[in-house]
């Protein structure tokens, strides 16, 4: 048993740009990172930070310029490692003329599964991603979100120990995002290692044991999300029981009415909840939920970059 599920060592990738005189562009710059078995790692960063490049290097879809990537103690691209991993590419695309079930049976076959076994597993997985009813439809008729779900199902067809998901939430509606979050949570509960990338911070919240934050091809910080210094930019408060007038008397103007008598209140930074909550209980308004709104990853990176440049200046 390898010590690490995933290990990146000084992983670097240059892409040649231009046709005649190739001027290399560094997509990934000496990234080192270890992921332990059973961890759920959020690989976060804005678009173009090198997240997809890292995943392609792990799948050996591209070759590193220098450094190495290992999965389960084996070099990237090793067939024995591939037997034990699953991979959802970014904006996945499969074969138009196949049905979801046929795709999973084909891919199952590549793992040596007998057709009957593969079919059983396909129907379990398609139920799990909510496509049970659509499994006999050709993929050409699938929406983006449905393809995303098929992509997750095919990544699990071999019951993998390590699952790589590249932007699993992109292109999904709110229900899809919730389902995907649930799915990742269940993968974690099953003891699998999950490595997923996202450019949206909130995707990582409540899911990840750890996050790694990438900016411009470099790993800028890793750690538990709570330990990272994200600035709180306000809170989202959901209440019920009061009426609009009562809330207005508190001087809270950013109020929207939600269904079944609930209200969503945006609390700015200068009205922290510990000030507001006592007043609410005075007005017999029940608090349904309270969520801090963090700064976006972009803002965080801007701040990091500014802070890094400041001493040098």
């Amino acid at each position: 048993m390898a010590r690490y599920a995933i290990r990146l060592e000084e992983l670097t990738k240059d892409y040649p740009i231009g046709f005649w005189r190739s001027r290399p562009v560094r997509a990934l710059d000496h990234v080192s990172l270890d992921v332990e078995p059973g961890e759920v790692l959020g690989y976060l960063g804005p678009n173009g930070a090198g997240k997809t490049t890292t995943l392609k290097l792990l799948m050996q879809l591209v070759y590193p310029t220098s450094g190495r990537a290992e999965i389960l103690g084996r070099p990237a691209g090793d067939v024995e490692a591939k037997r034990r991993l699953g991979y959802l590419p970014e904006l996945p695309y499969f074969y138009d003329n196949l049905t979801a079930e046929e795709l999973l049976v084909y891919f199952g076959g590549l793992f040596g599964l007998a057709p009957a076994v593969a079919r059983t597993r396909a129907s379990i997985l398609l139920d799990r991603v909510g496509l049970g009813a659509e499994r006999r439809r050709r993929l050409r008729h699938y929406s983006k979100g449905m393809l995303q779900r098929v992509g997750i199902a095919q990544a699990l067809v071999n019951d993998p120990e390590v699952v790589f998901l590249d932007e699993p939430m992109s292109g999904l509606d709110p229900v899809g995002r919730r389902d995907t979050r649930e799915l990742i949570r269940s993968l974690r509960d099953e003891g699998r290692t999950v490595f997923f990338s996202s450019h949206i911070l909130s995707d990582a919240e409540a899911l990840c044991t750890r996050v790694a934050i990438m900016v411009q091809g470099r790993l800028v910080s890793t750690g538990r999300l709570a330990d990272l210094a994200f600035e709180v930019q306000g809170w989202e408060l959901v209440v019920s029981g009061g009426d609009g007038g009562a809330l207005a008397s508190l001087g809270l103007d950013a109020v929207t009415t939600a269904v079944d008598g609930r209200y969503v209140v945006e609390l700015p930074v200068d009205r922290p909840p510990d000030q507001v909550l006592p007043e609410l209980s005075r007005l017999h308004v029940q608090v349904v939920s309270l969520t801090p709104r963090h700064e976006s990853l972009e803002d965080y990176f801007m701040r990091l970059v500014a802070r890094r440049q400041a001493p040098a200046a």
């Binding site: 591939k82 590419p89 904006l91 996945p92 695309y93 590549l110």
Partner: peptide, 14 residues
Amino acid sequence: ERRSIYSLLSKPVR
């Protein structure tokens, strides 16, 4: 071209 090779090559296929 259609990027289906990404998922195909992540299977145990050389």
